[in-house]
Computed example of a mutant assay.
Amino acid sequence: MLPLATFPTLFPGFGNPFDVIWWVLLGLKLVALLDAAFRPRQVFVAADKLTKPGWVLILATFSLCQIFQGGWLSFFGLIGIVAAGVYLVDARPALRAASGRGRGGGWGIRRRRGPRPL
């Protein structure tokens, strides 16, 4: 008899909700790490944030801790979640604004310079 095509048999590693949460949080940490790694060093100085090697070291360390420890509910796992969240919510928008790709710039919308007409 053929085994049933259930979610755990189709996608091994996603057997229960905690495995899905583990993969989502690892993805969040890796997105933050890759974003920090590919930004120019000068943007971190211009945005007055922690330096690029500091962010990359913090995010890489806690991403590797999650991979090798295996749990996101550990002490280092929770600190890594907070570090990735702080980077994505606080540092990344400031870095985008400092590099000239923040809100309101681009997308074909021209900003009016000078006073508004009556």
Rank of each mutant, 00 (worst) to 15 (best):
F68C: 04
F18N: 07
A94D: 10
D35N: 04
P12T: 05
Y87T: 06
L26D: 00
R92V: 00
P40A: 08
D19E: 13
W107F: 12
F14C: 05
G102A: 05
K52C: 04
I21D: 06
L25V: 05
F76V: 00
A97C: 02
G104D: 02
K52T: 09
D48S: 11
A47E: 04
I67P: 05
F68R: 03
A97N: 08
V43S: 11
T51D: 12
G85E: 09
L34D: 02
P12S: 00
W23L: 13
A60Y: 04
V31A: 09
W107A: 14
R96M: 07
V43A: 14
L78Q: 09
A60Q: 01
W23P: 04
V20F: 03
G85M: 05
R103L: 13
V89M: 12
L4K: 10
F62M: 01
Q42F: 14
P8A: 08
W107T: 14
L34T: 09
D90Y: 01
R39G: 08
M1L: 13
V43Y: 07
G85S: 15
Q69M: 15
I109N: 11
P93G: 07
P8E: 07
Q66C: 00
Q66M: 10
L57G: 15
Q42I: 12
I67K: 02
V56G: 05
I21V: 11
F62E: 13
V45P: 10
A83S: 15
Q69H: 08
L10K: 15
I21M: 09
A46E: 15
A46T: 12
L10Q: 14
P8T: 08
R101L: 04
G15V: 07
V89F: 10
G102E: 12
A83N: 01
A91F: 06
F44P: 07
